[in-house]
Design a protein around this nucleic acid. Structure first.
Lengths: 248, 248
DNA sequence: CCGATTCTTCCACTCAGTGGAAGAATCGGG
DNA sequence: CCCGATTCTTCCACTGAGTGGAAGAATCGG
């Protein structure tokens, strides 16, 4: 189409996605120059495509800065996997949250990472780094360990071959983590102790559906010393409730 | 670019948005023919563009059906207005939910409709039709009345000129609603009694920031007879907490 | 006020994109 | 199992939607 394409073979759809990909948690708002730079597009191209996305509501522009628009927020909510799981889980996560006042998570495995679908923030000052839509390592989080324990063997093999340290307490010896995963499959719950953040411990359990682990739920607390059994029991009841809702 | 464009002047970005717009709550999954039909595109065009969106993760395809992909879910979460409000409000909405076990809403005005940003589902069997991301009429919902009471005069004028009946109890006389809106500005809260759904009543209050009403929060209950004052007080405390969080 | 930076518009040129047609694949009823 | 109906995939001649450097307008901040 164009007489002077800087990147032959690039498509308009690809450029549109490059624009949308320019935004992230650290950059929710971008001026035009920065948007073009991050999208890898010449200024006039970014200007024209962003303008069209604004007209469709996919982007919004206020005081010179572009941001993701309401229309994309609405479209994103239509993604079936996050919305089905969140809808089924929400009442149970609220119950756990009401009972514990702790941060509560709903997560799924995404390749070799854990993806957070829902997070109810705790009031206690426990450091929690997860945000909805973000991913964290499988081996260093409670929900992640549950999902890893029930992952296909090739996924476990790859994760166990590349264990990175997050805190001094992160388990990075493959043998030790493998033993933990076997234990998780046996007992039905996972724990972490300051492995993802200092000062934060967690318990998590699987949500099963037809012999598959489709998600994990967990809580993050300052210490597991007193409440581990109680938290585990509450999470297991909630997980069963979620599974029933999913079966409907 | 193309030799035989069916819709001269149409852009690729526009076609991409037409594909994304083809999905809605009733149609979260679509086979290719249906996607093309709903997007108003010829089959090969829809096939090619959808395939490219799948490669970018914006769409997903499973067993022949397309759906909104995880990448768009993540991008949608970056929309600042919904995420800022939801993040600020979440602890307070959780508190209200824990205390009342009722459906709790966070909403903003979107033109002449109320847009639901967050909904914590109640356990009581009270009929609630809102879903996150959806819009409902301003005049028939608690949060809607609050937002309408504090809307610009031209918005109020337009809404009051077109009041549709949702249940037999919906207020459709402009004079009567105008009086209610004045009362809401005076007392600081709105109520509905079976105006949106039979069997559902609601209370709602504004969330203010710098003399502006930026959102409304509310609860939906089976009856207001006993708890109206208590619910209103709890909502007002929560609204003030949210406003403080927004100011940070 | 002025230099720096960002944003907007222009437009010659062309190749990314077009969709009808045809055939492959799938589905479901008999 | 067969066959008609329907959906999906691929092809490709043709062209106009899209391109980005350049230039000028607008904005910003010292």
């Amino acid at each position: 189409m164009a007489g002077n394409v800087g990147t032959p073979g690039a498509t308009v759809a690809g450029r549109v996605m490059a624009i949308l990909d320019a935004f992230d948690d650290q950059h929710p708002r971008l001026p035009l120059s920065e948007l073009a730079r991050r999208a890898g597009l010449p200024l006039p191209t970014a200007h024209r495509l962003a303008g069209e996305l604004v007209r469709h509501g996919a982007l919004a522009r206020a005081r010179g800065d572009y941001a993701i628009g309401r229309r994309l927020w609405e479209i994103g909510l239509l993604a079936p996997v996050p919305s089905t799981l969140r809808e089924a889980a929400s009442p149970f996560l609220n119950d756990i949250h009401a009972a514990t006042r702790a941060t509560v998570h709903l997560a799924v495995r995404d390749g070799e990472q854990v993806l957070y679908l829902e997070r109810l923030a705790g009031r206690a000052s426990v450091p929690v780094v997860s945000t909805v839509g973000s991913t964290l390592p499988l081996h260093a989080t409670g929900v992640g360990k549950v999902l890893l324990a029930h992952a296909p063997a090739d996924i476990r093999r790859r994760v166990l071959a590349a264990l990175t340290r997050v805190t001094p307490y992160t388990v990075t010896q493959p043998g030790r983590l493998r033993a933990q995963l076997a234990q998780i499959r046996l007992t039905g719950y996972a724990t972490t102790v300051e492995e993802m953040s200092l000062g934060a411990c967690s318990v998590a359990v699987p949500v099963r559906r037809e012999d598959q682990v489709v998600a994990a739920i967990g809580v993050v607390v300052p210490t597991l010393r007193r409440d581990r059994a109680r938290l585990t029991a509450a999470l297991q009841v909630a997980a069963q409730g979620i599974a029933r809702h999913l079966g409907a």
